[in-house]
Computed example of a mutant assay.
Amino acid sequence: MRIVTVTAAVVLAVLAGLLVVKTRTDDHAAAEVRPVSITAADTRPMLGVIGDSFAAGTALGGAGGQGFPMMVAERVGWRWGTTAIGGTGYVAQLPGTLPYDGGQVDRMVAARPDVLVVEGSQNDGRADVAAVGRAATALYAHLRRALPRTRIVVVGPVASNSAQAAALGSVDRAVGDAARAAGLPYVDAIAEGWFTDAQAALIGEDHIHPTWTGHQRIADLLGADLTRLGVLPPARV
């Protein structure tokens, strides 16, 4: 396990907003990410998550930093942190936000996570697929240069139902192809059936974002994938 020494300057920088950000209002819901506790005495490994409102959490589930990033990390006794911003993606952005590379990478690099998950994004469903692929390729290259010791795993767009899964197929392929070309493990949430019509009760009233129980399902499935890939230990009993 890599031991991280966090100086007072880094602690102040994180508290000032290098890592944890308040998510912007997206088309459907908003949330605030809970600040991450990073102290010189806390040398546990860290799980970081770059992503959209699924990772940030919303009022329908996962608000206040209680979503799947926290669940996955706490089950294995790790620290966690997310820079996720609702409405964003590899190229997608809402007014006042930036896509992943421009809006989240610097904050995540400052945190130096041991394992980094890049999730999404459903928001790229209306974007040019070729542009998504190019942006994903550039993002992974940036992350590998900036975080050479971090184990990076890419999670494809998370669909909310079966129809959306079909509509996101081209984005899923573009992101997956870019991840594999970069030599990064790819978790295909659509192929694994994280949310189909059979899990409609786990999606909120907006028919897009997961409920609290939906976040538990993501944590179960993603945690198992990360353990299978050898980047996380098995969950504690």
Rank of each mutant, 00 (worst) to 15 (best):
H209Y: 03
A30M: 12
L15P: 01
P35Q: 09
G64V: 09
E205A: 13
V155T: 15
D220G: 02
A182Y: 12
L139F: 09
A219C: 07
P69R: 05
L143W: 08
R44S: 06
R34K: 14
L222T: 03
R79N: 10
L15S: 12
G125S: 12
Q122T: 13
A166G: 15
A41R: 14
L226S: 00
R180T: 11
R24G: 10
R180F: 05
G223I: 05
Y90G: 10
G214Y: 04
D188C: 00
A16S: 13
A174I: 05
A29I: 01
R44I: 01
S160A: 15
P113M: 05
A159R: 05
S160G: 09
V11F: 13
W212H: 15
A178I: 06
G133N: 09
P157H: 02
V153T: 09
L202Q: 05
L60D: 11
D177G: 06
A159P: 08
P69W: 01
V49D: 03
L226V: 05
A40K: 10
L229P: 02
V49E: 04
L168S: 05
A224F: 02
T23H: 06
V153E: 03
A136K: 04
R144S: 14
Y140Q: 10
G223N: 00
L116V: 01
Q122P: 03
T23Q: 13
A110P: 10
A191F: 08
L221A: 13
H142T: 15
I208G: 02
T196Y: 06
I218E: 10
G230I: 00
G183H: 11
D114S: 09
A167H: 14
T83S: 09
R145K: 14
R2Y: 08
S53C: 11
Q104H: 11
P69Q: 01
S170C: 12
G120N: 04
A182T: 09
A141E: 14
G133P: 03
G125K: 08
M70F: 14
A135S: 02
G61R: 04
H207E: 14
P69H: 04
L232G: 00
V14F: 10
R2H: 14
I38R: 08
T43N: 11
T196H: 09
